[in-house]
Write a protein that binds this DNA or RNA. Structure first.
Lengths: 116, 116
DNA sequence: ATAATATGTCGTATATTTGCGACATAGTTA
DNA sequence: TAACTATGTCGCAAATATACGACATATTAT
């Protein structure tokens, strides 16, 4: 993206957009769901579960890791990726606050100039 | 590498990613917040409030409209953009379900093979 | 009708994302 | 040591996103 004028937006807007971008690909959504469903931290098996090459999956993992949504622990020959549950809770609250503001804000109604 | 990538992405994963992508730019986050804060539906004034050209803002509006997150009603010379509150509520629930699953799923702990 | 204004469209330039093969690195095992 | 395996890095191609000026269209006002 060409974020030439990113600085003009508020920190909140940028933060929400950043996290939304992390979830803006089904592979990354799938990875988070995978990590949540397995009761053990899986490593490269993630790639085997997704319809993408190992390289591409690794790339998606790096993107989630860059935002600290997931973390990786090296264990000998394998690497264990885990969800950062605390950060996910924070992010959930950010999204909740955003959606709540959006849905409770004054909507168009019969008392407004337009009614869509 | 083993290549057993037969599983495609689920409709849920694609839907969540699609909406997340719509929120993946601060300008679109700002637009939704703007529409929620104004108690009247504003039209091209949106462009005046954002640090982007009118053309670019229009482009972002089209993206939100393509997902039906916002709607536009032509009123003579101006156009009134409004939030689709009902859809936003649905989307909020999708995100809530996703985050709840992600945060309540088994996380790495001392009883697991790794502890990150 | 003409001018002014608001909105929408098109082309285009640039930046970013996505995807993957080929290669590199590092721990494990025979 | 040497083969093996899991992970990570690099470079490249294609697709998509971002941004905006120039132009087109439609409605209102003079």
């Amino acid at each position: 993206m060409t974020y030439a004028k990113t600085a003009a937006f508020t920190a909140d807007q940028q933060q929400l957009a950043r996290v939304a971008k992390a979830l803006a690909h089904p592979a990354r959504v799938a990875i988070i769901q995978l990590l949540a469903s397995k009761h053990t931290c899986i490593s490269g098996d993630i790639a085997a579960e997704l319809p993408l090459s190992r390289t591409t999956v690794f790339q998606h993992l790096q993107e989630l890791k860059a935002l600290d949504l997931i973390r990786g622990e090296i264990d000998g020959l394998t690497v264990c990726y885990c969800l950062n549950t605390e950060l996910l809770l924070q992010v959930q609250q950010q999204f909740t606050a955003f959606f709540t503001a959006a849905t409770t804000g004054a909507a168009c109604g019969p008392d407004d100039s337009c009614a869509c």
